[in-house]
Design a protein around this nucleic acid. Structure first.
Length: 287
DNA sequence: ACACAGGGTCAGC
DNA sequence: GCTGACCCTGTG
């Protein structure tokens, strides 16, 4: 019999967690559940009534891995309560994205994933990232007839061949991920040291990597390092910030970022994720 | 059909 | 600092 672990579904809505553009290593099943692979762990996440059921994971797997992955130590009820006091638009976004959580994912995987994300579309990003795991990673397990693979280390990815790169269909980004994987594998950039850096210092440090600019760096810091004061400014955040917080059109991402931190404070990155999801799902500012 | 945008970044000025 | 080009592909 397959192992399972069950916990309360308060502040935990799988589709709002997985379908908000922070994670790409999952499949939605026919019953609405999500099968997710992270590091060398695999499980299926299903919401039934007031419960979340993890299949393929037991209490020990939860305590050792998934609890941290889902950032279960963070109190999202309190967070939403604080956000509601700050601003009515943010309150609307938190209600819309009820149960959204910002995950703690692998830093190297985030680096490669968000380099690929630049000037790209979410379905294509998902395809490319999963193909990298399939080509260069190891088999983690199987669920519902589908095989799941771990994301490769920098050492492994740095040995990808030209032919394999072709298969990824990531266009001009192939030289970015190759050079970045090499810089990390050969220790020119130390990913561990980033944990101890202030967010702005870390952003600058990450921007040394080919294909990493300020926005991608913020995504890496928010989704991979748990730095909640990283505030990625993309097209959607630009739209939503202009809609609510600027009287005249603001295009400068640096100033939008500053405004976000000024309004939303030390957890601005979490606010950003609600706003991003809200703006994109409602196609805010389109025509 | 075919232009357009997509979780931006880079090189060149 | 600003501008244009950039591999692809899903969408209208």
């Amino acid at each position: 019999m397959e192992k399972t672990y069950t916990f309360g579904a308060k502040d935990f809505t799988p589709e709002h967690i997985f379908e908000n553009g922070q994670a790409f290593r999952w499949e939605k099943e026919e019953d609405g559940s999500f099968t997710v692979v992270a590091k060398n762990h695999l499980c299926n996440v299903k919401k039934t009534g007031n419960d979340i059921i993890l299949s393929g994971a037991d209490k020990n797997d939860y305590e050792e891995f998934w609890k941290s992955y889902f950032n279960m130590n963070r109190d999202y009820s309190k967070l939403k309560n604080d956000f509601r006091k700050i601003d009515i638009n943010l309150e609307k976004a938190t209600i819309f994205g009820e149960g959204l959580r910002v995950l703690k994912q692998d830093p190297f995987e985030m680096i490669i994933t968000f380099i690929i994300s630049a000037n790209n579309q979410i379905p294509r990003i998902k395809k490319s990232v999963n193909l990298i795991a399939e080509l260069m990673g190891d088999k983690v397990g199987e669920f519902n007839g589908k095989i799941y693979y771990s994301f490769p280390t920098a050492e492994k990815l740095s040995k990808i061949t030209k032919e394999q790169l072709e298969l990824l269909r990531i266009g001009y980004r192939d030289e970015y991920i190759l050079k970045t994987a090499k810089d990390i594998a050969e220790s020119r950039i130390d990913l561990e040291s980033i944990y101890d850096m202030e967010t702005m210092e870390a952003q600058k440090y990450l921007c040394q990597l080919m294909g990493v600019g300020p926005k991608v760096a913020d995504c890496i810091l928010l989704f991979g390092y748990g730095k909640t004061d990283a505030f990625p400014v993309d097209t959607w955040v630009k739209k939503v910030m202009n809609e609510y917080y600027f009287s005249e059109e603001m295009t400068n991402p640096k100033k939008i970022r500053l405004k976000g931190l000024e309004i939303f404070g030390e957890d601005a990155g979490l606010a950003q994720q609600y706003l991003f999801y809200y703006a994109r799902e409602n196609k805010l500012g389109n025509k």
